[in-house]
Simulated scan of single mutants.
Amino acid sequence: MRTSEADILIVPGLGGSGADHWQSRWDAKLPTARLILQDSFDRPVLSEWRERLIEEILRAERPVVLVGHSLGSLAIAHAAPHLRDSGVKGAFLVAPPAPDVVATLSSIDPAFAASPMEPLPFPSLIIASRDDPYSSYAESERLAGSLGAELVDAGNSGHINADSGHGPWPEGLMRFAGFLKNL
Rank of each mutant, 00 (worst) to 15 (best):
L46Q: 04
W22F: 11
R25K: 14
S115L: 13
G148L: 09
F176T: 03
A128I: 01
P97L: 06
S124I: 08
D7P: 02
P168I: 10
I160W: 10
S129H: 02
A75M: 05
D42M: 12
V11P: 00
L35P: 02
I108L: 09
A111H: 04
S107F: 15
P170L: 07
I160C: 10
P96L: 13
S4Q: 13
L74G: 03
K181C: 04
I57H: 13
E141F: 09
F176Q: 01
A111N: 06
K29W: 13
I57R: 11
Q23P: 01
P123N: 14
D20K: 13
K29S: 11
V45E: 05
S47A: 15
E118P: 00
D132M: 12
G18K: 08
H69A: 11
L74T: 04
P63T: 03
M117K: 12
F92I: 02
P81D: 10
G178F: 13
G165N: 08
A95Q: 05
I54H: 14
E141V: 03
E55G: 08
H69C: 04
S164H: 00
R84I: 06
F41N: 07
D109K: 11
M117T: 01
E5Y: 12
G16F: 12
A111Q: 01
H78K: 09
A77T: 04
A111G: 03
Q23C: 12
L183G: 07
S4E: 09
A114W: 11
V102K: 01
S124P: 02
H166S: 09
D42W: 14
P12F: 15
G178E: 05
A19C: 08
R43W: 11
D153N: 08
A154I: 06
R175P: 00
W169T: 00
P170M: 04
P119G: 01
F41P: 01
A95M: 09
S157Y: 06
S146D: 04
S4C: 11
E171K: 14
Q23W: 15
S140Y: 13
R25A: 08
F112A: 03
S17C: 06
L30K: 00
L46V: 00
F122H: 08
S124Q: 08
A79S: 15
S73Y: 15
S107A: 15
L74A: 09
H21R: 12
V11A: 07
I8K: 05
L83H: 10
A33Y: 03
G90K: 13
P116M: 14
G165E: 05
I126F: 09
P96E: 05
D100R: 15
V64E: 01
E48Y: 11
T104K: 15
D20N: 13
G145P: 00
H78Y: 12
R142G: 01
L147P: 00
A103Q: 07
I127R: 14
S135Q: 02
L37E: 10
Y137M: 02
P81Q: 13
H69G: 07
P12W: 11
L105Y: 15
G165F: 15
R2C: 02
F179I: 00
T104N: 09
R43L: 06
I36S: 00
R50D: 03
E48R: 14
L14T: 00
S146R: 15
K181V: 02
R142D: 04
I160K: 07
P97I: 05
P99G: 07
A128G: 04
S140Q: 06
A60L: 10
